[in-house]
């Protein structure tokens, strides 16, 4: 194992979870450094989960000032102007998160995800980005892949009653229990750019409709120069037109992306708190798995839609 023992205080506090993942996984968690960008509801949930789990440090990035929308699904921000006035969303979340577990170092960095250089990024083990444009996702992901060490990269976004997680663990080795034995497993992940560039016609059968709908909206936001989630009902004709074009060029039956789903996502881009709890929970578990090297990580997209209640893993990588 990793040598160092857990302190008495840690054993006491983490008792119930050590019974789930073991003391050596707990030690690895306590040495993990995690960066998150974009503090909306799902990310707030995720941060709560990993701070409780006892990671080493958490660094938050979100320069926005508090707005009505920032408050909506985020329980880390007190809705009191005398408290939040003048502070950034990240600073406010940091204050609340510190309180959840005094053994975790929580801090704030100012800046934009695209401005971070490799020197900075390499100080982390896990990087999670949310509410980022397509270009930002690609750029942070590419920088992670160039670092001298393996850094796990995730994107997470929720809109309407839906959520999406993307995972890039690069070349990932982990231990898996099979009956009595522990076997070494290996997975090879594509980057975000590679994953979304896989031609749709070679996708596995019956990939979640959400994958396609979200790719269309992402392209729309990029083409129109919108911030992520900045769409409304007036954009619907434009998005549907784009959907048609993309489906034609990708040779995908248009009916596979129901207009009703696109409409929900475009007209109602705000988060739905129960879905944030679910997506933030799944992402928390995934990061804990990746850090501790225990258990099958998901590869490489996860979708949840409250309308059908299914939480589905999709593997979209060039090999398949």
């Amino acid at each position: 194992m990793d040598g160092e023992e857990l302190t008495e205080q840690e054993t006491q506090l983490y008792d119930r979870q050590i019974r789930v993942w073991g003391a050596d996984a707990q030690r690895r968690l306590s040495k993990a450094h995690i960066l998150v960008c974009g503090m909306k509801g799902a990310v707030a949930e995720f941060c709560k989960n990993i701070v409780l789990a006892g990671i080493g440090s958490l660094t938050l990035v979100d320069n926005r000032l508090v707005t009505e929308e920032a408050l909506s699904a985020n329980f880390l921000i007190p809705p009191d102007e005398s408290v939040f006035g003048g502070k950034s969303v990240a600073e406010l979340c940091c204050d609340s998160l510190k309180d959840f577990n005094p053994m975790v170092r929580v801090s704030v960095i100012k800046g934009e995800p695209s401005s971070f250089d490799e020197e900075f990024l390499k100080t982390f083990d896990v990087i999670v980005v949310s509410c980022c444009s397509l270009a930002e996702k690609k750029s942070v992901n590419e920088k992670c892949r160039k670092l001298p060490k393996r850094v796990s990269f995730y994107t997470v976004d929720c809109r309407d009653s839906c959520g999406e997680i993307f995972v890039d663990l690069q070349d990932y080795k982990y231990a898996k229990k099979k009956l009595e034995d522990t076997v070494e497993c290996q997975l090879s992940y594509p980057s975000f750019e590679d994953a979304i560039s896989v031609p749709w016609k070679v996708h596995p059968r019956k990939v979640s409709k959400l994958f396609y709908a979200l790719r269309v909206i992402e392209r729309f936001e990029e083409a129109e120069g919108r911030s992520p989630g900045e769409t409304s009902v007036s954009d619907l004709p434009g998005v549907l037109k784009l959907k048609k074009e993309i489906c034609e060029s990708q040779l995908l039956n248009e009916a596979h992306i129901p207009n009703a789903l696109v409409e929900r996502l475009v007209t109602n881009p705000t988060e739905f708190p129960p879905v944030c709890a679910i997506i933030g929970g799944i992402l928390g578990q995934e990061v804990i798995k990746a850090v501790s090297g225990k258990g099958d990580p998901l590869k490489n997209f996860f979708y949840f839609d409250a309308v059908d209640g299914k939480g589905t893993i999709e593997d979209i990588s060039s090999q398949s």
Binding site: R16, Q17, W21, K48, C276, A277, I278, G281, I282, Q285
Partner: peptide, 13 residues
């Protein structure tokens, strides 16, 4: 055995 993430997911459901 108990972890926060499962509880959060179940509460959402």
């Amino acid at each position: 055995h108990a972890v926060a993430t499962t509880n959060a997911i179940i509460a959402g459901l």
